[in-house]
């Protein structure tokens, strides 16, 4: 019970951060700020996965020898029965699988960020602004008399 109280805050804070970044993303009309919100939202999803992977008293999932000095120092801090039950060959490790997934997700995140910002740069070049409101006003103004029609040869 004490453990549950002492550790329940982790998920609560992560969820709050997840929602705060989603809020930034949904409210702002600025393209760059939207991308910042999106990138933070993805990061907080990563925090959630890594929180799942934590094993109390564990060490990084890089196999070490239980007989080595490091391994023994690790084990000394823990209840032998606990190590016996949850350790692998005498060492307790964190769960590697979520680490792998989030490594992938981080890279996906930076890829999305770069494409999104590249589009934002093109919006700025085409409209002279990166606020969605300004873009909407410009489109509304353009569609009144004549739609943005042929724009000459295709370019970049």
């Amino acid at each position: 019970m004490i453990d549950a109280l002492a550790t329940g805050y982790v998920y609560a804070i992560i969820v709050a951060m997840m929602m705060a970044s989603l809020f930034v993303l949904l409210t702002t009309g600025n393209l760059i700020r939207k991308m910042i919100g999106l990138s933070l939202f993805q990061t907080t999803a990563g925090l959630f996965y890594i929180a799942l992977s934590k094993v109390g008293g564990g060490t990084a999932p890089i196999i070490i020898d239980a007989e080595s000095a490091v391994g023994q120092a690790r084990a000394a801090r823990l209840d032998p029965a606990y190590v016996e039950h949850f350790g692998v060959d005498g060492v307790v490790y964190g769960n590697p699988l979520p680490h792998v997934l989030i490594l992938t997700a981080i890279v996906v995140g930076v890829a999305t960020l770069s494409v999104g910002l590249a589009i934002a740069v093109r919006v700025r070049e085409a409209y002279g602004d990166t606020e969605l409101d300004a873009v909407r006003r410009a489109d509304a103004a353009a569609s009144e008399p004549e739609p943005p029609g042929p724009r000459g040869r295709p370019n970049a």
Binding site: V115, V123, D139, R151, P154
Partner: peptide, 16 residues
């Protein structure tokens, strides 16, 4: 967007 600049905000929105 080379033909119609509205493609840029549309693509951005889709990305988000």
């Amino acid at each position: 967007g080379a033909r119609d600049r509205r493609a840029y905000p549309a693509a951005f929105n889709y990305l988000i």
